[in-house]
Design a protein around this nucleic acid. Structure first.
Length: 108
DNA sequence: ATTCTGACGTGGG
DNA sequence: CCCCACGCCAGAA
C-alpha cells in the first residue's frame, strides 16, 4: 500500500523543481534510486506529458541540452518556457547550466 | 512470448 | 578529440 510508483516519485521531484532552475534525468534517476536508469525518467516525462503540473521543460539531459523539446506541443515551447523563467537557452543549449542546475537531492 | 526503440549516462577505444 | 558499445526499465509492434 502507498507504494510510490517510479512515475509518482519522478513527478513529485520534477514538480518541486524551483522556477528558474533545471535538473537532469540522471540526477532524478539517482535520487529515486533507479541509478543509471535515466531513460525511465525521460519515459516518465512522456507519460507525465499527458497529465499536467509537471514542468518537464525544466528537465534536460546531463549536457544541459534540450533533447526532449520535440516532445512538447511545439519544439520551441520548451525554450520559451525556460527563457521565460530566466533560464537562457541558446541553440537548445542551456547557458550557465551549472548555475541553474538544481539537484533533487537537496530535498533530502 | 520475443524484439526494438527510447526525452540518458557512463565507459572504453 | 570523436565514435562505439553497454546498461537500465518500460511500453509498443
Amino acid at each position: 500500500m502507498a507504494e510510490l510508483n517510479i512515475y509518482d516519485l519522478i513527478y513529485d521531484i520534477t514538480r518541486q523543481i524551483p522556477r528558474g532552475r533545471v535538473t537532469s534525468y540522471g540526477a532524478i534517476a539517482r535520487c529515486i534510486g533507479t541509478g543509471g536508469s535515466a531513460r525511465l525518467v525521460g519515459w516518465a516525462m512522456n507519460a507525465c506529458h499527458t497529465l499536467k503540473n509537471v514542468p518537464a521543460h525544466r528537465v534536460v539531459n546531463r549536457n544541459g541540452l534540450l533533447t526532449g523539446k520535440h516532445h512538447f506541443a511545439t519544439p520551441t515551447l520548451m525554450q520559451e518556457l525556460l527563457e521565460k523563467e530566466g533560464v537562457k537557452v541558446i541553440d537548445d543549449q542551456i547557458q550557465d547550466f551549472d548555475k541553474v542546475f538544481w539537484d533533487p537531492m537537496t530535498l533530502i
